[in-house]
Each structure stands twice: as structure tokens, then as C-alpha cells.
Computed example of a mutant assay.
Amino acid sequence: MNAVIDSLSSLYERDIDTLQAEVKAYKSEANLWKVNGEITNSGGNLALHLCGNLRHFIGAMLGGSGYIRQRDDEFNLKDVKRSELIDQIKTTKKVVIETIEGLKEDQLAENYPVNVFGKEMSTIYFLNHLHGHLNYHLGQLNYHRRLLDQ
């Protein structure tokens, strides 16, 4: 494998494992779904959103997984069991890692197959963007847990 693909695979694996650890770290399963004041995204919804985002943009768009995203559900579903969230995270990890490891080096420089931001971008650019998005929401999830898991 190539060093860039190895790095991407390693970083996504590490951070999806962190997502799973954060979901497991809630003392109370019910607290995954708490919102309060300006904290309008629950930890559970953040986890659903990350799984949907990665399974769509990496699994389906790059890997041809056939996953159909239901973005509204990522924010509207409530009280999904923690075990179901963990299963979704595990599936997401498997799909993301397999897809990234299946990429060829020259694919990284090619245009990402969907114009997401109103302009063309390389696949490596968008994979880096998605990794930043994952980490942004991981930080929110960590704060959500520490603030509302009482």
C-alpha cells in the first residue's frame, strides 16, 4: 500500500474507534439523547450523523457500497439503543477502512465523484475534509458527554 493510503486508513481507524469509545463512555444510555439550551445536537445524533456521513461519502460514493443515506434521520431519530449505535459504528469502520485500503494511489489525485461544495476537488482533499469533519464532531460529542452525562 502507499504511505498516504496507510496514513488515512490509520487515522480513520483511530478516530472511529474514538467515536465508539465516546459512545460507550456515557454513564447512562439515556444521556446520549439529552439536549440542553444551546446544545441542540445530542451525542446519539452526532454518532448517527458521523456514521451516515462516512458511509455515504466514503462507503457509497468511493466504495460502491450501495448505502442510501437518510440525513434527516441522523438528527431526528431519538433513543436508539447504545448497542445499535455501536453496531452502526462498527459497520462504518469496516466500510471506511475497506474502501480506503481499496483505493489506488492515482485515485487520490482524481476528482471526487460528486461535486459537494460547488467546485471540483480531488479525492484526497475531500478525504482530508471528511477526517476534519469527523474530528470536529468528536470534540462536540466529548463535550456533550462531559457536560450532560450527569
Rank of each mutant, 00 (worst) to 15 (best):
R71M: 13
L85K: 06
R71P: 15
Y67H: 15
V80L: 03
E84D: 11
L85R: 05
L62I: 02
I86R: 00
T91I: 02
D73I: 07
L62W: 07
V95C: 08
T92P: 08
L85P: 02
K81R: 04
E84T: 08
F75E: 01
K94H: 09
G64S: 12
D72K: 11
I86V: 12
G63D: 09
S65M: 05
K81T: 04
Q70D: 12
Y67F: 15
L85H: 14
G63V: 05
T92N: 12
R71E: 09
D87S: 15
I89A: 09
R69H: 13
I68Y: 03
D79A: 04
Q70I: 10
K93T: 00
N76H: 11
L85T: 04
Q88G: 05
Y67C: 11
Y67M: 10
G64K: 00
G66I: 12
L85F: 06
S65I: 02
V80C: 01
Y67K: 09
D79H: 00
K90R: 11
E74D: 15
V95S: 13
Q70F: 11
K78M: 06
L85I: 06
D72H: 05
S65H: 07
D79F: 04
L85C: 06
F75H: 03
R71C: 12
Q88W: 06
E84K: 03
E84H: 01
K90E: 15
S83P: 03
K90A: 10
D87K: 13
S83Q: 08
G63Y: 07
Y67P: 10
R71Q: 14
I86S: 06
F75L: 01
L62G: 09
S83M: 03
D79R: 02
K94T: 14
D79K: 05
D87V: 10
L85N: 03
D87N: 12
Q88H: 04
S65N: 07
R71D: 12
R69T: 09
K81M: 07
T91Q: 11
K90F: 00
Q88L: 04
E74M: 06
K78V: 00
K90I: 08
Q70W: 02
K78T: 09
I89D: 10
I86M: 09
D73M: 05
I86L: 14
D79V: 00
K94F: 09
E74K: 00
I68C: 13
I89G: 10
I86T: 07
N76Y: 06
E74W: 01
N76G: 11
S65G: 04
I68E: 15
K78H: 05
R82G: 08
E84W: 05
Q70T: 14
V80F: 04
D73T: 03
E74I: 01
Q70K: 14
E74Y: 05
G63F: 10
Q88F: 02
E84N: 05
E84Y: 01
R69I: 12
G66A: 06
R82V: 10
D72P: 04
F75W: 08
I89L: 08
K94A: 14
R71K: 15
I68N: 15
Q70M: 10
K93A: 09
D73Q: 11
D72V: 06
L77H: 00
S65Y: 13
G66E: 02
